[in-house]
Design a protein around this nucleic acid. Structure first.
Lengths: 133, 133, 133, 133
DNA sequence: GTGGTCTAGACCACA
DNA sequence: GTGGTCTAGACCACA
């Protein structure tokens, strides 16, 4: 996973984001076992408690479940996973909209820019998702 | 300015991004003087050469201009500034689109999600462009 | 046995409770020999005198009997054991009722809540009698 | 508040229970300010982090809310408080039912014992809620 | 080994 | 001062 923290948000929230993205992108499939808290903490370079907190929160949100001695697993609930995709998509939308509004552009222009981009994109090379910030 | 670099892109490009955002957001107005290369480099914690490269590139793109001894200034060309807004907006759009496609959602769904978000946003509190929480 | 004392009640009474529960739950059957006072005291971490007092009281209530040199035994009187079940059950009922009334709920609601709970319970997993989780 | 922990349940859960009981019993009214995390931790004799965890959980359940620099407050949502009464009542019911079933009595007998107790109680002195365990 | 809990202690933003 | 976050490190039950 791509552990890359900045100082703008608590680390455990950023961890949750990273894991959510990993799940949705198919890095971990439904029912698949996650590495142990300690392993993940080591990998991410954070304290096991911080990782534990992130995972406990993900568990409470229903995206993973734990079997006391066996470890933690991605939920098998496909509906839940679809919900996660939507949630992340809305986050991306929100970040984009608020950033553009901060530029001083009017909201009505956003759908136009989107349409234009999508039109120009069809047939093009995939284009790597490296934008601003 | 919010200097916050990650390892995914050359630093001078990230610097350009940051400065562009500062200009468009009104942090620096048309014709306003920028701090010196040395000051900016110190502030950003980078090598002056790196900062120099970023500024030279911005100058070449026409967003700043230099007066031999007086320093560098934001362009007074309003048209140019509008163009910059558009450019950044398209970048935000691209990041969003590619991120959502990476989730496995179909492109057709993006305009729908956008419309939904904009509708739900009207009348709401301003909402800062941060992550979930 | 589950020796777990709090400061709200004399310890010998709490010991009696614990032993009564052990008897009724089948931990000790009718006619079965109890460990010696010293053993029990050691196990519970109390003074032998305190344990002695609890056992003497239990004997007076007819739930155990002693044979001069052989030790103490659970009564063989099935009727007596049924009575003990009832007694403990009423205690549980009382604790529950008084706790709920302390919440400010009206007494009439208690039978309704009970009925509801029993209905929801049929067919469910056994459910251990612990707190919330 | 009556901080009295046993080893059967995590302390933070017991803290939550204690605070919930305090709220429902009227010790703290709607909108009333709770002592600070540090004060409560000192009072309860636990680590501030443990108290923090209990309060964060209560906040997530909607029974308290925090104002960053001002402290934490009991919710003003009367509906939420009624829900809390019910929740605690059901807990008491459950503990009672499961304890009685553990004695080997049949479930059908519980409503009868309850009715009997309530009948015998009318007009009696309040009777202190000290039962078994 | 696994998740889970707890303590001690530091540091942060906010106002 | 207030809530919130993070680390280091210990200990526990479960199997």
């Amino acid at each position: 996973m791509n552990w890359d923290f900045d100082g703008n948000l608590p680390i455990y929230l950023q961890i949750m984001q990273t894991i959510k993205t990993s799940i949705v992108s198919g890095r971990y499939g439904p029912g698949e076992k996650l590495p142990s808290v300690r392993e993940l903490a080591l990998d991410a370079g954070v304290n096991p408690n911080t990782m534990q907190r992130a995972l406990a929160q993900l568990e409470q949100e229903g995206f993973v479940f734990s079997q006391s001695t066996a470890g933690r697993f991605i939920t098998k609930d496909r509906q839940k996973l679809r919900q996660l995709s939507q949630e992340l998509a809305v986050q991306y939308i929100r970040t984009m909209v608020e950033s553009i509004l901060a530029l001083g552009l009017p909201p009505e222009q956003i759908p136009l820019l989107l349409e234009e981009y999508l039109a120009g994109r069809s047939g093009d090379r995939p284009a790597s998702p490296t934008g601003p910030r």
